[in-house]
C-alpha cells in the first residue's frame, strides 16, 4: 500500500497540521501561510521518499509524529518570536493586549480566591464532621458546597477567552453565596472567626463591603468583556491602526 494514500500517514498529517495551525495563530498571516505550506510540502516529500524506499505507512507516520514532537519547543519559540515581532510593530495594540492580560489575570485571581474560600470552608466542615464538632449535611454546608461548585464553574469559564464575560457574570452569584454562607459556617467551626465576629464591631460591615466590592468588580469585568463592546473596541483599534 502506498504511504501517501494510507490512513496512518493521513492521521499523522492531520495531527501535525492541527499543531501547526495552533502555533501559527496570532502570527503574521503571510509568515503563517509560508510555514503551513512549507510543512505540507515537507510531509508530502517524506511520504513520496518513504514510498520509494519501501517503508511501511506506520513507520512513516511514527517518523512524522516524532519529528513534530522533537521540534515542538522550537515551534513554540519561533511562534513566540513571530508574535512578538507583530506586537512590536504595533505598540498601541501591544499595550492594549497587556492591559487586557493584566485585567484577565486579576479577575481570575479574584475568582480563584472565592473558590479557595469555599474549598477551605468545605475542608473545615469535613474535619468538623469527622471529629464530631458539627453534624453533617446542614443547610449551610450544602449551600457552601453548591456555591463552591458554582465558583469552580466560574473559574473554568473565566479561564477561556471566549467565555470570559460569561465567567465574570457567573461569578457574581457564587461570590455572594460563598462569602455569606462560608463566613456563617466558619463562625461555628473557627475560633478565630468566632472571636472576630464578637470583638470586631465592623465585622459585618467589612464582610458586606467585601461582597459588594467583589460583585461590582465582576460586574465591571462582565461589561468590559461583553461581546458587543469587545467587538466595537476591536474595530476602533483596527481603525486607529489603519
Amino acid at each position: 500500500m502506498s504511504v501517501v494514500t494510507s490512513m496512518p500517514y493521513h492521521r499523522a498529517v492531520r495531527q501535525v497540521s492541527r499543531w501547526c495551525a495552533w502555533y501559527t495563530r496570532g502570527v503574521d498571516a503571510d509568515t503563517a501561510a509560508n510555514r503551513r505550506d512549507e510543512l505540507a510540502s515537507d510531509l508530502h516529500e517524506q511520504a513520496t521518499w518513504a514510498d520509494a524506499a519501501g517503508q511501511s505507512p506506520r513507520c512513516v507516520a511514527r517518523s512524522i509524529l516524532g519529528r513534530a514532537g522533537r521540534g515542538a519547543l522550537a515551534d513554540l519559540s519561533w511562534s513566540h518570536a513571530q508574535r512578538r515581532r507583530v506586537a512590536l510593530a504595533d505598540p498601541v495594540a501591544l499595550r492594549g493586549r497587556r492591559i487586557e492580560a493584566t485585567a484577565a489575570s486579576l479577575v481570575l485571581v479574584a475568582a480563584i480566591a472565592v473558590f479557595g474560600l469555599g474549598l477551605y470552608v468545605l475542608v473545615r466542615v469535613g474535619t468538623g464532621v469527622a471529629t464530631g464538632l458539627i453534624r453533617g449535611g446542614s443547610a449551610t454546608s450544602v449551600a457552601v458546597l453548591v456555591f463552591t461548585a458554582l465558583a469552580a464553574c466560574g473559574v473554568m469559564l473565566l479561564a477561556r477567552r471566549k467565555t470570559r464575560f460569561l465567567g465574570a457574570l457567573w461569578m457574581i452569584l457564587p461570590t455572594i453565596g460563598v462569602i455569606h454562607y462560608g463566613l456563617y459556617q466558619l463562625y461555628s467551626l473557627s475560633a478565630t472567626v468566632g472571636a472576630l465576629m464578637f470583638s470586631m464591631p465592623g465585622w459585618s460591615l467589612a464582610s458586606d463591603a467585601l461582597t459588594v466590592g467583589l460583585v461590582v468588580y465582576f460586574a465591571a469585568a462582565t461589561i468590559w468583556w461583553w461581546p458587543a463592546r469587545a467587538a466595537r473596541s476591536a474595530r476602533v483599534n483596527a481603525g486607529v491602526r489603519v
Binding site: 510555514r35 510543512l39 515537507d42 513534530a68 522533537r70 521540534g71 522550537a74 515551534d75 519561533w78
Partner: peptide, 8 residues
C-alpha cells in the same frame, strides 16, 4: 531533523 528545529 525535526520540523520545528529545521524550519526555525
Amino acid at each position: 531533523t525535526a520540523h520545528g528545529t529545521l524550519y526555525k
